[in-house]
Computed example of a mutant assay.
Amino acid sequence: MSRALPLLVLLTLAACSPGEPAEGAPPAAGPDSGRRETAVFAGGCFWSVESHFDRLPGVISAVSGFAGGSTASPSYDQVVRGGTGHLEAVQVTFDPARVSYRTLVDGFWRTIDPTDPAGQFCDRGPSYGAAVFATAAQRPIAEASRRAAAASLGERRFVTPVRSAVRFWPAEAYHQDFARLNPARYAGYSRGCGRQARLAAVWGSPRA
């Protein structure tokens, strides 16, 4: 995902395509309340996860970065080379008066393949694993959401975990808002990945 990658590498690396709000997600409930909470999600390429959350009513910001590893302030190159233990992740800041944490988690499952333990779509390797990083207060909500989602796929097949919240490290500036700022290059990922087809196979309906 560095800015100088050739097209062939772009197409063979994990394709990142944007997600849509979960079906049935409530619309924004009035004006900004000024309240702020954060949540962290890992779902393969952070460009895709960020793009999905950026488009949800009630989300204030989505920041691409890393979570779950042992290396402080890791660089993108360190994470993708392996050994840091980090996953590509996104920190979501939201207004809980406009969108609930449960709605965010429920929608997140539908944008990933929770049956895949080795990455997401064309993103392969440890840094592309999926997880919900939950605080102590968030964990019962995240676990309830996971149980509901797993019921439709089978608990044994549903391998994406809810993990304890850890420190989140933002990625380099050129990764932030990548889908919005680099639409042509981002589209190259989307076309080369097969993400929509896999989501349709897992969940029974196409998801972006």
Rank of each mutant, 00 (worst) to 15 (best):
C45H: 02
S164C: 05
R207A: 14
A42V: 13
F66S: 04
V79N: 01
L87H: 08
E20C: 03
A197H: 07
F108L: 07
R110P: 01
A39Y: 01
F108A: 07
R36C: 04
T84E: 09
A97P: 01
A14S: 11
L56D: 05
I141S: 04
G83P: 00
A136W: 06
R207G: 12
D116T: 10
S100G: 10
A187F: 01
A201W: 03
I141L: 09
R167V: 00
F121T: 06
S70Y: 03
L104D: 03
F178S: 13
V49I: 07
R98W: 00
A42S: 13
Q120W: 01
G154H: 10
A171L: 11
G43R: 09
A200K: 10
A42F: 04
P96I: 15
P27H: 15
P117S: 15
P18V: 11
P117K: 15
A134C: 08
S164A: 14
R3A: 12
A28D: 13
E50H: 12
A25P: 00
Y174N: 08
Q78I: 03
F158I: 11
P206S: 14
E50R: 14
P140R: 14
V49D: 02
S205C: 04
G24P: 04
A137N: 06
R81Y: 05
G44Y: 02
P27C: 15
R124L: 14
Q196A: 11
